[in-house]
Write a protein that binds this DNA or RNA. Structure first.
Lengths: 191, 191
DNA sequence: CGGGAGAGTCAACAACTGTTGGCCTACAGT
DNA sequence: ACTGTAGGCCAACAGTTGTTGACTCTCCCG
């Protein structure tokens, strides 16, 4: 192992990144099957065989494309009133800034590996986040699951199914409607 | 046109139905691309060419498989307190009794025709349902969209992504947690 | 200047896909 | 008995897919 401290700017790194970006865009737009290696390569402006050289197989490319974090806000730094709006705005921002999140959602509908990745994100990023404000771990798990139903439901209907009423509403309006819901899932009780 | 009053029990009707049932099962389990005509035919116990003979093309088979109604309960016959639980239980029942709903959801992630069908169902079945208890049509549209985010989010996380915390909860527990949410979307106000 | 490795292209393979047309079989009506 | 027709199967086509290996080009280092 050579010490690769300070930049080792392989010329291929840019291509590697271009492939990954193209893959996310195609996966987000077309889903797994229709996002052909050839289509991804074409969008990245290189030969299809390069995709294989750098990522080994289409499945591994998917794994690389789905490997990202949610970068969720720190709930303990926010008042209970601020939390819910921040979560909703963060989700919408995450979906609109790049296609990674939507790619994961769309591909997870058909590819078990992506579905497993989504389960991992809920268990290892949302659940611990909730655990910072909910001491009971059993209950924190449930709150995380319930939160996911609403958050992923919003992302699905707005960016994948594109239901007109959901698309038409602004981020502020959605936040206003959904804040009490998230508040309920974060700290409320059933019944 | 011959008068086909009282049964004309074509021998093919059973095969036709078997193909449709098999298609829904495969679409629900594998999504559109992986649900091969050959796989569907095999599950129906007939030859792949029969699928084409009866449904013309794979796209038309999908259209036939996605052609169903939500059979939603009549909200005006229920007290506000009963409505929400009834809606949630109805959705879970719909998803668990046969695979049609899950097939639509899974396929809609990649096939525009199925996504369009989901938009149609929201606009022509959920929206009119809400209109029976919400006079303002603009607001009824929004309530329908918001309701869809939570309902489809539940179906997605429980039956497609199979998030463990959501799968683990019983129908009663989910209804208890989500009833206030639906109540808010049905009759509440933002902010 | 020469060679070796990194970066990339090209052409092909084998498998699988939706789809088609020809052929067989059973049976209802005459 | 005969025949037409509906229901079904088989084999094949043409296109697309993931994947591979051989070949080219272009620097960089000695």
């Amino acid at each position: 192992m050579t010490v690769d401290r300070d930049v080792t700017p392989r010329r291929s790194d840019r291509t590697r990144a271009a492939i990954l970006a193209a893959a996310r865009e195609r996966f987000a737009a077309d889903g797994y099957a229709k996002a052909t290696i050839r289509a991804i390569a074409a969008q990245a402006g290189i030969d299809p065989s390069m995709v294989m050289r750098y990522y080994g197989s289409k499945e591994k490319l998917l794994a690389a494309a789905a490997d990202f974090g949610l970068e969720l806000p720190d709930l303990t730094q926010l008042t209970p009133a601020e939390r819910t709006g921040a979560l909703i705005r963060h989700l919408l921002d995450l979906c609109e800034r790049n296609d990674t999140m939507i790619a994961l959602l769309r591909v997870a509908a058909t590819q078990e590996a992506a579905a497993e990745r989504s389960r991992f994100l809920v268990a290892n990023q949302i659940e611990p986040l909730i655990a910072t404000i909910e001491p009971d771990p059993e209950l924190a798990r449930k709150r995380a699951g319930l939160l996911a139903t609403q958050m992923l439901g919003l992302a699905l209907t707005r960016y994948v199914l594109e239901l007109p009423p959901v698309v038409a509403m602004s981020a502020d309006e959605l936040a206003a409607w959904m804040s009490p819901v998230l508040q309920h899932y974060l700290t409320g009780r059933p019944d």
